[in-house]
Design a protein around this nucleic acid. Sequence first.
DNA 1: TTGCGTGCAAAGGTTTTGCATGGCA
DNA 2: TGCCATGCAAAACCTTTGCACGCAA
Lengths: 138, 138
Amino acid sequence: MTVRTKYRTKQRKILMEYFEANPQTHMTVKEICDYFRSHDISCGQATVYRQLESLVNDGIIRKYVIDENSPACYEYLGEKEEDHDLTFHCKCEKCGKLIHIQCHRLQDLQQHLKKGHGFTVNPLRTVLYGLCEQCRKQ
Amino acid sequence: MTVRTKYRTKQRKILMEYFEANPQTHMTVKEICDYFRSHDISCGQATVYRQLESLVNDGIIRKYVIDENSPACYEYLGEKEEDHDLTFHCKCEKCGKLIHIQCHRLQDLQQHLKKGHGFTVNPLRTVLYGLCEQCRKQ
DNA sequence: TTGCGTGCAAAGGTTTTGCATGGCA
DNA sequence: TGCCATGCAAAACCTTTGCACGCAA
C-alpha cells in the first residue's frame, strides 16, 4: 500500500506510454502482459502489478474493481482529472457491458448526499449495477 | 448463476437462522464457517458458498463486494423486500461503516437513468463507496 | 425412490511475496 | 556504489468444481 516509485525505469516508461496511447480504455494485467510479450518487451507480471499500484498512488491511472472474480481493470486518467470525478460507471449484470455516464443529475445527487446525508461519494470507486437497455428488453 | 434451492435442508435452515439473528451485520464466508465450527455444526465451506448464492438469488440476503482482495460480505435483508428496493447502501472506504440511505432523490435518479440513459439500476447489488462524515473531517 | 444438496479435496484464477540479480542515479 | 526495481517461481487467497455419498420430499 502507498507504494511510490523513485526510479524512472524502462518498464515504468513503457507502461506509461502504453496507457497514454490508450486513453479511455480499460486494461487488465493480462492484456498488458500479452501486449508486452507480443512486442518483445520484457516486463514481468510482478513488475506490472507493482508499477500499476504505484501509478494508481500517483493518480496517473485508475483502478476498477468490477467484481471479485474477474481481474481488476486499469484506465489512464490523463491530465484533466476533473472529468473523471464526474463520470459514473454502470455495469450490466447480464451481459457485463460497462457504460460510462456523465450526467449532471449524478453530480446533483453527489452534492445532495454530501450536504443532506454527510456522505461523500467516490465515483472512482463506485459502480452502479443493473441492466442495460438491450438486456432489459429481453 | 441463478441457483435456486428446492430442498429445505438442515444447513440452509441453520444459515438462515444465523442471518436472522444478525440483522444489519456483514458476514464473510470465513466468519460463518468459524461460527459453525465453534458451535459444532457441520456445514462445509462449499455448502456455505452454494447456499449463500441461493439466498442471494432468493432476495433473502445481499452480497457485497468491498474490493477484489478481501472476501465478499453478506447481509440479511429481512422480510419486507419492498423497502430494500428503495434503500441504497453507502460504504465508507476508510472505516468500513455501512450507511443505509432511503431518499427520494436516489429514486428520482433511478428513474432518470432508466428513461434518459436506458440503464436500470439494481439497488440490491449497488453500493456507493465514499467517505462518511467523521472520516472526511479527519 | 428420485434427484437435489452436501462435503471433501482439488482445481482455478488473480494477486502478492521472497530472494537473487540487474540497473538507475 | 548504494539502493531500488525487476523477474522468476512459489505462495497466498478466495471461490468454484467434480464426484461420491446422504438426505429431503
